[in-house]
Structure formats: structure tokens, C-alpha cells
Design a protein around this nucleic acid. Structure first.
Lengths: 218, 218
DNA sequence: TTAATATGAATGAATG
DNA sequence: CATTCATTCATATTAA
């Protein structure tokens, strides 16, 4: 259905009232926030499972110096196969590190902050901070920044050419995916047009709704 | 980008187009669904935690790529009505590039021709050629070759032992259909965990939940 | 509809 | 740093 909005003409100068806009914005934002909060809560709760609430056994929380199996941090575990004999050695499954949502957020934030080349020292710091939210190693952080840089750059290179949006083909009227390269920091406001609202909503404000949600769980 | 459109005050009987209405409905509905799923997951997890507490030491839960990444970070979904600029309403567009038959043929041909590593420049050329037969981006081409290479390698890994080995690749473009071996049902039971052997339980639980969740997204 | 497969895309890690 | 590899995720397509 390729329509170039030619018959529109007016181009929706205004199809929604401010009130409607406001309401919708709130609604969507609320949902987005709740979702995000839930994910975080879920993660936190699971982490807590580790320390407290161990009626059966205690299973050694990360003692000191060296954490047991740090490299098996964020095993994604797609399907059911997670039985890991926690005995002494079973290091047969080397899953790659998977940053948690919080970790990603932190990393993105730092990256966005403008440091293209974190020094060794900086890496250490970041690693430490991230370790508060999950297992990480300095190598992970290092790789992450490397990849991040490369990716950004390549995206830039690919996005440059004037992508003549010709007519849709009869076969694949698909649209090029546009990856968001925006790292919007915590701006607690929903300013901007409707375009922004979806983005803002998912990154802003997650303190208040937390309790609200906990109450809601029936 | 705040595109104004706020001080009109038309107040018509109909302030939203049907398309916009539809989009918003989908969006909100999607959020609602996600929230629902998350709440349920959280609740179930809480129950699990209560009954069988699995004090695993590490292994953060994986609310990551499965779904978390896709809607929290990814945002590949429709951008609300962020397409008012003459875009009209094609929110239900496909998100994944699907090469046309002709494009596939060309790609296969090039691939077979022996270019294992198309350079950036080569990518551009190929992209241009393909664009004569449908929409493509350089990223698409890049990914295609990446995937093609990996796939060839993998397929080759299995079928080779007792016949003409050291072969290049299958020349037939549509000869990639091959058998798939089952998932490795490697039941690795916890064998000899002397002490800490309560790690598996909770992990399994989480996996189930995760799986459940991802399955439900429809 | 559901399950299985094929395949485009995302990304951590490795290599030069 | 620049590319590439390997693994996994998400979705499109097809089969049961």
C-alpha cells in the first residue's frame, strides 16, 4: 500500500487536541515505564534470591577476591538447558557475556558522555560500577566500547548515501530498519512531538511507579 | 523534534484520523500486553522463590535479548505516528528486509563467484545493482554475506566425511536445504556436586518462565 | 493454530 | 582501530 500521502494535502496540521495528546502521552509513557520497571525489578529480585532467602543452602555468595564463576555471568540460556553441575569443574559451556539491562544503560550513558577511548583506569572504574549490577570483567567492558565505536561508525557510513526511497517493489515493500542512535539521558519531561514520546517514555521515570506496581501484583 | 502543531485549536468532531487511532490502539495494546506478561512472570517467579529457593551464586537472570532487548532497547517497532511527514500510514510495514527472487539470485551469483569478503566499496556496488530490483541497503547486503558465509560453513561441517571433500561450496543457489539435527538433548544432570548443588533449580525455573514469556508474545 | 525451519539482524569476542 | 567470526535472537515462511 504505497501511498505517498499525496491525497492528504493538509498533512494533518492538527488531528489531535492538546488534551488528547496529553492523555495519550501519559498512557503510553506509563505503560512503558511500568514495563521497564518490571524488568528491573525482576532482575533485582532474582539477584536477591542469591543472597537472602536461602533456606536450603547458602551456596557461597561471592566471597572475596575472586568470584566463583564470573565469566558465566549473564548466561542467556535460551531454552531449557540450564542445569549446571555446580560442582568443582564443569566449565564446558562458555557463554558469552550478556550485559543486563542496567548495565547496558550505564554503558550507553558513559559512551554517550563522550569518551571514545576509556583508559585502562577508566575501564576498571566502569567495570567496578557495572559489577554492582551483575558480573562483568574488564575485558567485557573493553570489548563493549570497542564494538560500540565500530558500530556507530559503520552505521554512519551506511546511512550516508542518499537512500532514494523509490517506489515500493511488488515483492518486498519492506522498509529499511532505522536503528536508534540516540542516547537520551534522563530528561524528565515529555517535550516534543509525538515522535519523541515513545522514546522518552521508555527511558524516563521509573521510581514512582515501582511501588505502584508492587501493589498491583495480585 | 517538537513540530509544534499545538496552537490550532480546531476542535473538530473528529480530531484523529482512523489510521492514527489504529496506531495508537496497537501501541497501547502492545504495552498493555507486555505489562501483563511481565507482571505474570514476576508473580510466578515470586512463588517459585518462595517454594523452592534456588540460591545460585551468580548467573543473573536473562531478561535480555529474548524480549527485553527488543522492546526496551530495540524499539524496532513502529514509531507511533512518527511518520506524519508525508509518510502517510504504513505502520504495519515489514521490519525485516526480504530479498526478492532476483536479488537472491544476484547475491548467490556473486557469492559463488568467489568473493568471500566483499569490501565496503564492493558492497556499495552490489547494493546499487540490487537496488535495481528492489529496495536494499548496504547493511542488508553486508548482513547477507555474513550470514551466507556462516551458513555455508556450518552446513559443510556436517556433510563431508565420506565423499569428495575439500569442495568449494554448493553451486546451486537453492540447494541449501539440508537436514537439521535435533537439539542436543544433553541432559547434564548435576553429577558430583559436593556442596553447592542447589544452583540448578532456580535456573531452570527462570528459564521456564522466560520461555513462557517469549512464547506468549504474539 | 501450532510447530518447525529458514534467514535477516544484533552483538560479544577474536583477529589483523 | 578495522574487519570478521560465532552465536543467538526475531521474524518470515512453510509444513503438519
Amino acid at each position: 500500500m504505497a501511498e505517498g500521502a499525496a491525497e492528504e494535502g493538509v498533512l494533518c496540521a492538527k488531528v489531535m487536541t492538546d488534551e488528547q495528546m496529553e492523555v495519550l502521552r501519559s498512557q503510553i509513557s506509563a505503560y512503558a515505564t511500568i514495563c521497564e520497571q518490571l524488568v528491573e525489578m525482576h532482575r533485582t529480585m532474582t539477584a536477591q534470591q542469591d543472597s537472602l532467602s536461602g533456606p536450603l543452602s547458602v551456596s557461597s555468595p561471592p566471597p572475596h577476591g575472586r568470584f566463583g564463576c564470573s565469566w558465566v555471568a549473564g548466561t542467556r540460556s535460551s531454552h531449557l538447558f540450564a542445569d549446571q553441575p555446580s560442582g568443582g569443574a564443569k566449565i564446558s559451556a562458555k557463554q558469552r557475556w550478556t550485559p543486563t539491562a542496567v548495565q547496558v544503560r550505564i554503558l550507553e550513558s558513559i559512551f554517550y558522555h563522550g569518551n571514545g577511548t576509556p583508559s585502562k583506569q577508566r575501564i576498571k572504574e566502569i567495570t567496578f560500577e557495572l559489577s554492582q549490577h551483575g558480573q562483568v570483567s574488564e575485558t567485557n567492558v573493553y570489548n563493549w566500547f570497542q564494538n560500540r565505536r565500530a558500530r556507530s561508525k559503520r552505521k554512519q557510513a551506511f546511512a550516508a548515501p542518499s537512500n532514494t526511497e523509490s517506489e515500493a517493489e511488488e515483492e518486498s515493500p519492506s522498509e529499511k530498519k532505522a536503528k536508534k542512535e540516540m542516547h537520551l539521558h534522563d530528561s524528565r519531561q515529555f517535550s516534543g512531538g509525538p515522535d519523541e514520546m515513545s522514546v522518552c517514555a521508555s527511558t524516563v521515570a521509573k521510581d514512582i511507579l515501582c511501588y505502584d506496581l508492587q501493589d498491583k501484583r495480585t
